[in-house]
Structure formats: structure tokens, C-alpha cells
Design a binder for these strands. Structure first.
Length: 397
DNA sequence: TGGGGTTAT
DNA sequence: ATAACCC
């Protein structure tokens, strides 16, 4: 199955959204099978250059986590609320007309018995999400995450091993039934641009002039989506590994003073520091993101980022050093760089992001290390550059 | 539209 | 730093 085309987007068709245990059954079936059925027609064994990839998509993930935490919720219509939105809901609720991303007021109107739990804190969802990924990684290390509730697993090697074990008379008996996917064109912006070109179905895209498409969308996007329209996707399943960034955000109706903003930034930062200390790696870059109020249309985010000073990074992990104060200081500088606080302003979102994560330095301490570290900390090099310099010196030593 | 994520430019 | 994409 192609990676990007693999998910049927219509709801309510009883499509194969699965729990992890069922996913494992499917994986076993896939490993045993040597043929794929398309339109109920059995096609021969995959050839040596093709791959076997499973796509595991967890059903109404946040709602499931809540139902596991509190089984009393299991047989009730349940919605997970973030601000004034029901971001997802269980099937009881869907039967009664509640939809994803529905207004709380509309949802309550449709379904007065709806039970709501607050899902603004993603901690438990994030933890469960990584448990699922780690479970899948036991089968193959090649697991790519997409959001919190989807994983792609490349099972090619497992399948090949299984096929070698099977006797030839067993081979002919195994079949796996397939799935036929419907027309759907891709991301929002690209879909709009395609529509402007008169392309509204997969078939339209298949038959459209490659040259014109390349001129309109750029060669990279054009060639990729046109291959996708034929079900061809040679992109690898890229192991996600640990996250490359940690962020916390909060949205609100109005924030219009620096003091108010500072309070919110401090809250976001406190949560992030907890998370980062658990992770063990250290961020070398910090970013502040804002969203300004705008009465209509799509509202863009703005951001400012800077390297985290090395003396702050060092104090990040253990110890009771106050890392909040210097960090808040940096963030407020970034804030004033974006927002002219002498003028009236109206923000609707603040977000803090730690990125450019690096593993702890595992090199053994030598006699020169203290000298090298202190001399480098006084330079104005970027983190990347100074690490390169340090590494080369280490090799020399 | 929330609260996250990734990659490309 | 932003824009596009994904959930």
C-alpha cells in the first residue's frame, strides 16, 4: 500500500481503524500472506522491489484514552473538549450526531446527554501514543509516526523471512483481502490550486499535463502528487525516533498586556521544562510563537527564535538551579521583538517551543575539556558550529 | 478550529 | 522565519 494514499478518508464506512491488538493480528496476516487482492482479484506475490507497509490508525484516540482511564465513560456518549470545541468523540456520541471539531454548544444541542472531559493537557495522550509506537517497534524498528494516533510500519523484512519459511504448498492457500480507495485530493492549499487548474479528481490529476503541473506547483510537488495519483509512492518509511521538538501552546480570546503574556509564557515554560528533563536530551534553540487577533480569514502565526545560552543549557537537566528566570528573560525579549508593547495589541495564542535537541555529551572528560568548554562558551558561534570545532579538537587530542 | 507535530524553502 | 503539510 502506498503510504500517503493508504487511508480512506470517509467516516462511517466501518473502515479499518484498529486497536493495537488487532493491528498485530493484521500484521501477522500480512506476514503470512503472499498475495494481495484488489477488487477481489488475487494478484501474484509481490516482486522483490516492492514493500509491505502497514498503517495503524487508532480510533478516536483521545476518547479511547479517556475511556481506559475511567471505564465508567465507556457506555456513555463522550466528547473530548479543548476550549469551546469537541475535538473528538467516541462512537456512542457519533451515533447521536456529534462530530469531530464540533462546537460545544452545537454538540450539546444535538446530544444533551453528552459527557465532556477536558483534553487540553496532552500529557496522557502523548504517553499512550509513544507506548503504541514502542509496541510496534518490537516487530520492526522501522516505525514512522504521524500525529499521535497513526503509525506506519515497514514489514518488508519480516514478510520476506516468513515467506522463506513457508513451504510452497502453503503459499498458494493464503490470501489477504484488499481495500479500494476513493477519490480524494491531498492538502488544503494544493487542492485549491489544483481546482483552479480544473483538477478535482484523482483521474483528472492522472491525465493532466506533467509539464504544466510542474510549472504551476514546482517540480517537486508536481512529480510527487502525480505519482501518488497512480498509487505510486516510493517514499521510505522513516523511523521517527524521539521527537525533534517539544512545544506547549495555549489559545485564548484575548491577551493584550505584557504582564498577562508573561504569566502565560511562564506556565507554558514550566510544563516544557518538566518534559525536557524527563527526555534527557537538551534543547539548543528556543522559539516563541504568537497569533494576533484578526477579525476574519486565515490567521498566520509569527515566531522568533534564538539559541539557548550554553550556561543555561548546562543547568537544564539535574540540579535545582533556577532555569526559569533566564529562560523567561529570553522569551520576553523575543516577545518584545515581535510585539510593540507600546502600542495596543491583541493576541489569541502563545506557544513556546524547544527544538534543536542534542543528546548529552557522552565523550569522556579529558584534561583539556574544561579549557575547551570555557573558551567556546565565550565565542559567539552558533551551537552547531561550536560543536564541530569541539569535535575536531577532540579528535586531535 | 485545538494542541500538537514534520519537512521544504 | 515562514509556509505547507499531517493528525
Amino acid at each position: 500500500a502506498g503510504k500517503l494514499g493508504a487511508e480512506p478518508k470517509e467516516e462511517g464506512r466501518g473502515c479499518e481503524e484498529a486497536d493495537p491488538a488487532r493491528a498485530m493480528e493484521l500484521a501477522e496476516a500480512g506476514a503470512a500472506g503472499c498475495s494481495q487482492a484488489v477488487h477481489d482479484q488475487v494478484v501474484p506475490t509481490r516482486n522483490s522491489s516492492s514493500r509491505v507497509i502497514i498503517h495503524v490508525d487508532l480510533d478516536c484516540f483521545y476518547a479511547q484514552v479517556e475511556m481506559i482511564s475511567n471505564p465508567e465513560l465507556k457506555d456513555k456518549p463522550l466528547g473530548v473538549q479543548q476550549k469551546y470545541l469537541v475535538v473528538t468523540c467516541n462512537y456512542e456520541a457519533r451515533k447521536l450526531g456529534v462530530r469531530k471539531l464540533m462546537n460545544v454548544r452545537d454538540a450539546k444541542e444535538k446530544c444533551p446527554q453528552l459527557v465532556l472531559v477536558n483534553g487540553e493537557d496532552l500529557t496522557r495522550y502523548r504517553e499512550m501514543s509513544y507506548k503504541v509506537t514502542e509496541l510496534l517497534e518490537e516487530f520492526s524498528p522501522v516505525v514512522e509516526r504521524l500525529g499521535f494516533d497513526e503509525n506506519f510500519v515497514d514489514l518488508t523484512e519480516i514478510v520476506e523471512k516468513k515467506l522463506q519459511q513457508l513451504q510452497s504448498d502453503e503459499l498458494s492457500e493464503v490470501t489477504v483481502s484488499g481495500h479500494v480507495y476513493n477519490n480524494q485530493c491531498i492538502g488544503y492549499k494544493t487542492a485549491k490550486r489544483l481546482e483552479a487548474l480544473g483538477i478535482s479528481s484523482v483521474h483528472d490529476l492522472q491525465t493532466f499535463s506533467s509539464k504544466i503541473l510542474e510549472k504551476e506547483l514546482g517540480i517537486s510537488v508536481a512529480q510527487r502528487i502525480q505519482k501518488l495519483s497512480f498509487g505510486e509512492d516510493n517514499s521510505p518509511v522513516t523511523p521517527s525516533g524521539p521527537p525533534q521538538s517539544f512545544s506547549e501552546e495555549d489559545s485564548f480570546k484575548k491577551c493584550s498586556s505584557e504582564v498577562e503574556a508573561k504569566k502565560k509564557i511562564e506556565e507554558l515554560l514550566a510544563s516544557l521544562l518538566k518534559r525536557i528533563s524527563q527526555d534527557g536530551r537538551k534543547p539548543h534553540t528556543i522559539r516563541l510563537v504568537i497569533r494576533r487577533y484578526s477579525s476574519e480569514k486565515y490567521c498566520c502565526r509569527e515566531s522568533r527564535q534564538c539559541p539557548i545560552p550554553s550556561h543555561v543549557i548546562q543547568k537544564l537537566g539535574a540540579g535545582n538551579y533556577d532555569v526559569m528566570t533566564p529562560m523567561v528573560d529570553i522569551l520576553m525579549k523575543l516577545f518584545r521583538n515581535m510585539v510593540n508593547v507600546k502600542m495596543p495589541f491583541h493576541l489569541t495564542l502563545l506557544s513556546v517551543c524547544f527544538c534543536n535537541l542534542k543528546a548529552l555529551n557522552t565523550t569522556k572528560k579529558g584534561p583539556m575539556d574544561y579549557y575547551l568548554a570555557s573558551s567556546l562558551s565565550t565565542t559567539s558561534c552558533s551551537g552547531k558550529r561550536s560543536f564541530k570545532i569541539k569535535d575536531s579538537h577532540m579528535e586531535d587530542i
